[in-house]
């Protein structure tokens, strides 16, 4: 457990002993002081699908659609197979491992591109990139033309269906927001919170410690982004993936 979490836990315990409940949260949020990066370490991912479930709960993501999902890549001799049964929501059925050369899980989410094609193509300005580096959708303004869904190279967007729980979001584009409502209040995104192996981590460049930590990761491991040839400059970094992952 990292120091920040430890301190927070101590704070919680101390609070319960003294009877003083502390609210650890930034009172005001200034987005120019923050900048978020996400790191997915596939060498740690166990494909349990807890991130998928947590995301669905936290963000009211409807059935069959995903703000985040987990893919499994399997190398056989001479071919690669990819699967993602129901986005990895229920985990993955075991494969018979006779001919498997290697295999790992790849969690996917919106890459929060620095040069986002979805924002470029939105005809009305209903999707935009905030100064802290998150691409958001204005569900009250989106006309539902789906151009952004076509433009996203990563399949990270979908049209919120009519049977979805959030009424105002129906028939508009929806996507991962890094749990913007959480990160702006000093909480971690739901998927990061529940990831049992710390395969998913988020770093705020506005926080000196987190910045150092991210730099250390970049220093010590080889980092890839998905589909760099698209020129989108993703902010989700992957550790341990092969070029076949796209």
């Amino acid at each position: 457990m990292k120091r920040r979490g430890f301190l927070a836990a101590i704070l919680g315990v101390a609070g319960s002993l003294t009877g003083i409940k502390l609210e650890v949260r930034a009172l005001t949020y200034n987005w120019s002081e923050h900048s978020y990066f996400f790191v997915v370490d596939v060498t740690e991912c166990i494909g349990c699908g807890r991130c998928v479930v947590a995301c669905k709960v936290e963000n009211d993501v409807p059935e069959h659609f995903f703000r985040t999902w987990v893919e499994r890549y399997i190398w056989y001799e001479g071919e690669i197979k990819v699967d993602s049964p129901e986005g990895g929501f229920y985990g993955f059925p075991e494969i018979d491992d006779e001919d498997v050369m290697k295999s790992y899980f790849v969690p996917k989410l919106c890459n929060q591109c620095e040069n986002p094609p979805c924002v470029q193509v939105c005809p009305v300005g209903a999707t935009y990139r905030t100064p802290d580096g998150v691409v958001l959708v204005d569900e009250e303004y989106c006309i539902g033309c789906r151009y952004c869904i076509q433009a996203c190279p990563y399949g990270a967007r979908y049209l919120y269906p009519l049977n979805g729980k959030v009424e105002s979001r129906r028939n508009t584009a929806d996507k991962c927001t890094f749990c913007y409502h959480r990160i702006t209040k000093n909480s971690k995104p739901a998927c990061v919170e529940v990831c049992p192996t710390r395969a998913r981590r988020i770093f705020d460049m506005g926080d000196e410690k987190q910045k150092e930590e991210l730099f250390k990761i970049i220093e010590n491991s080889s980092i890839r982004v998905l589909k760099p040839e698209q020129g989108t400059k993703p902010r989700v970094f992957y550790i341990g993936i092969d070029s076949e992952v796209r």
Binding site: G12, V13, V24, L136, D138, Y141, R182
Partner: peptide
């Protein structure tokens, strides 16, 4: 080129997951 109010709307959505330290209270 977007509605500024939209950022506040999204930032003010309610949490369903809490933070771990709250549990130990």
């Amino acid at each position: 080129w977007y509605r500024g109010e939209s950022v506040r709307e999204i930032a003010n959505q309610s949490h369903k997951f809490a933070d771990t330290y709250r549990c130990f209270e």
